[in-house]
Design a protein around this nucleic acid. Sequence first.
DNA 1: TTAGGGTTAG
Length: 635
Amino acid sequence: MSCSKGKLSSLFTNPERPTSSNSSKLSSLFFTTQVIPRPTSSYPTTSTEAPSPSVPIQTPLEHFLQTNCKSGNFTLNEALHYFDRMILMQPVPPMASFNRLLGGLAKSKHYSHVFSFCIKLTSSGLLPDFITLNILLNCFCNVKRVCDALVALGSMIRRGYKPSAVTFTSLVKGFCMEDRIDEALRLLEKMIKFQCQPTVMTCGTMINGLCRAGKTSVALRLHEDMSKGNGGFGVYCKPNVVTYGIIIDRLCKDGMIDEAKDLFLEMKDRGILPDVVVYSALIHGLYYYEKWEVGKALLHEMVHCGIKPNLVTFNVLIAALCRRGNVKESSDLLKLMVHRGISPDLFTYNTLIDGFCLVGCLNEARELFHTISSRGCQPDAVSYNVLINGYCKNWKIHEAVNVYEEMIRRGVRPTVVTYNALLTGLFKLGRVQDAQMLFAEMQTQNVLPSSSTYKILLDRLCKNDCIPEAMEIFHTLENSSSCELSVEIFNSLINGYCKARKLEIAWDLYHKMSKKGLVPDVITYSMMIHGLCIEGQLEKANGLFLEMEGKGCAPNIVTYNTLMRGFCQNNNLEKVVELLHKMSERNLSPDNSTTSIVIDLLSKDENYRKCLDWLPTFPASSELKAEVTNFKSFA
DNA sequence: TTAGGGTTAG
């Protein structure tokens, strides 16, 4: 188990023996011996006057704790201000008041402030209670510091508190967030030993973790066991709208739309009414997979059931329209949501900026980007990335680089997406040196390249005749664990070497990928066949074609065309016809490239006569047959 | 006063 090396985590290294230097820090929350508790009052008040029994007067502090903290409608400065006041009050407000404030901060994801406020609490001699510790433990989990959360759990137990389902649910989430799914599952089943029954929220958290980890089938099994009440996974709670929603969303994201719809019907059959989240998730899936009519019908059903579309629903619809290039209707939808009193958020603006970029309306995209701040949001990395990508895709690298520089000037940290977009843009324009310099800058900015970055680099370097540079990066990757070598990376290099007529090196790479446990795909085979054909090694090319079929890798239209072109150049009409028959048997339709190959073949005088023999049984599409017949009549 | 779900970029 590895603990994070942050300042706070180091406080937990020796919980039994806190030193005087750390007793005022977070760790002291867990040591009653180090804290001299100050008395706390039984009600939160800032007023010296007793409230009137008939007209309760709420002080600003009470209003802040009971209203703002609950709704999340407060600024950090306000929280800091009230916290400092509370801590100095005499008598000190009850811990429940501090918990309200800490809970509000945690809900607003101000985790680091929860940590610092907890340190201040203990250094002021106040003793956190069970709820405080649960809030703290949950915050540790949310910042992927399960190690510290477990120390908090241990201390909680030592202080005589019995961990509740809330405690365990936080820990399950923490394990899931650290990709420790098996440990999360074990904890779920262990809860019972602590005489704590998992609740539907614990199960929802577990199901969500399983889904995110790609273990949808296990999530479905747990959900089914919940429905059956058979005690599987040690749980006895029934599924609810949230558990159904999580699985429906996952199935949609996995493209299993029909299964998602079935589950949606099942929940309704069981009397669990879908809410706006479930409808939005399913509508998103339906629109994403182009099932527009069904999506529209579901939207109508939702409204008919009295469920109002919310901000996320509108964002889903705006994104769907943008993907279709219908940015005009998207903008109309934006006006409609504002008219309905729903304020657009950064998701809305980023989606619309992307929509404008997709249809090439870069000025409109830029204009909207510049109005984000005046609309109450601040552009984030996604906003910048969307715009940079828009410029790169439209060959406007100069503008893209300007946006990148503005991004850095404004203190928005570029991400790997930023660099991938810029690298692609630079390579597209053949600016290899600039791309290489940007790759170096990416490293100085401490942005880790992703597998996509390496794919872009290797692919584009090869295509720009920089094979040695590509190989240098490849060798670095071979000797490091920073990025897994993939079939795509090998394909880029194989393609480069085939085109450079260095077939032997391409062969070496082809064999190397198998040794590394990678399975060549249809692109690998097609490229190798292409390379062999160029070198006139048709027999070997045909052998590889048969080998790929034998290994269960189905040749596609590109593979067939590549090999047919090889045989065509070798004037081997019989072999081309054989391949056309094979294509027909495999239900593969010839494309324009196939037609041109056949026409080229026929245009050779010696083939024309032969053509008359096999044309009546020609296994090709009507378009290809028509082309051939045209050629015949013309000839 | 503490725990779970849906929307944007390569």
